[in-house]
């Protein structure tokens, strides 16, 4: 056991994966000597050497593309993109190739790679450094999209993502990279892919979230509990493939649901969850499903971004509306 922050847990998971499987490689911009712009790869070059950890030229397309070539050749590359806002030039590689190599060749070639990036707002960054566009990747058949929200789950999910034979997009909520410390059981990967995490049990309301917004969502559950209201909190963890069964089971019990995410509302992944509730859980619902999300705007620069990110106030207001609905 060790007490780690989320970014330390990412680092520990990378080290563990490299330790247990020599096919695991780390590549990306500044991941070597510098240890990554957020220090997620700190110490890996010293420990595993230049044949396992490579700095790449400043070119995101080829970071993803070279990882595909390495993966097709039997390596297990973990490629870092420094910020989600710079992942857009990897979309062609991820959509056209990583997601399809197994399918296109009927299993002859596979692409067991992980594309990691810090994502989300709230760190007072300049433009393009606060993006939360996970739904772009979650739309793509063949990709897995995984988002941890705490050190322990970050460790387990990343270890499982690296072991996974499918390509995984792993998005790390950088706002909480260093705000929480948690005991992490090293060497074991207890957080499975493909399943949501029920963080708090409750009978009155289901709150569904992922990434950094889980923190505010948990705070709202705590506030509600002081009023005797039991809010069940679900951290989606893996958006794709989605474990909708856990969400449906919860809503069957509570009848009410609020979905919280940082990304813009329209086309956001919350819409998919709401659609599945409408499709498979309509008769459980006692109130409309509400979404608390970023607005359908560009995420503002630091002076206004706190108005954009789902706050505890906005989540609480939505929760009370849904609870009051008759």
């Amino acid at each position: 056991m060790a007490e780690l922050t989320l970014v330390q847990a990412v680092n520990a998971a990378l080290a563990q994966a490299m330790e247990e499987d020599e096919r695991v490689l780390v590549l990306g911009e500044d991941v070597g000597v510098d240890g990554g712009v957020f220090r997620a790869t700190d110490g890996l070059l010293d420990r595993f050497g230049p044949t396992r950890v490579f700095d790449t030229p400043l070119a995101e397309t080829v970071v993803a593309g070279a990882a595909i070539g390495l993966a097709a050749q039997g390596f297990r590359p973990v490629a870092e993109i420094q910020f989600m806002g710079f992942m857009y030039s990897t979309l062609d590689q991820m959509i056209s190739h990583a997601a399809r190599l197994r399918w296109r060749t009927r299993g002859r070639l596979t692409c067991p790679m992980v594309l990691r990036a810090p994502y989300g707002g709230g760190i007072r960054a300049i433009e393009h450094h606060s993006e939360s566009t996970e739904a772009l990747f979650a739309q793509i058949p063949g990709l897995r999209v995984v988002i941890p929200s705490a050190p322990n789950r970050a460790y387990g999910l990343l270890l499982n993502a690296i072991r996974c034979p499918d390509p995984v997009v792993f998005l790390e909520p950088k706002r909480i990279y260093r705000t929480i410390r948690e005991e992490v059981a090293l060497g074991t990967a207890v957080a499975p892919l493909d399943s949501c995490f029920v963080l708090n049990e409750g009978r009155d309301l289901t709150l569904v979230s992922w990434g950094a917004s889980v923190i505010e969502t948990m705070a709202v559950a705590e506030t509600l509990s002081r009023d005797g209201i039991g809010a069940e909190v679900i951290d989606v963890g893996t958006l794709r493939p989605l474990d909708s069964a856990t969400i449906l089971r919860s809503v069957e019990k509570t009848g009410r649901c609020v979905i919280v995410h940082e990304a813009a509302r329209t086309g956001g992944f919350g819409g998919e969850i709401a659609a599945r509730l409408a499709d498979e859980g309509l008769l459980f619902l006692q109130a409309p499903v509400k979404r608390v999300t970023g607005y359908d705007t560009v995420i503002p620069l630091p002076r206004l971004e706190h108005h954009y990110l789902p706050s505890t106030d906005r989540i609480l207001t939505a929760a009370r509306e849904v609870l009051a609905f008759e």
């Binding site: 397309t61 993803a64 593309g65 070539g69 390495l70 993966a71 097709a72 039997g74 190739h97």
Partner: peptide, 16 residues
């Protein structure tokens, strides 16, 4: 041209 990056990666695998 999307496969030129794959070629660089595959060739890197041989080198490694």
């Amino acid at each position: 041209a999307t496969h030129l990056p794959h070629a660089a990666g595959a060739a890197m695998a041989f080198k490694l």
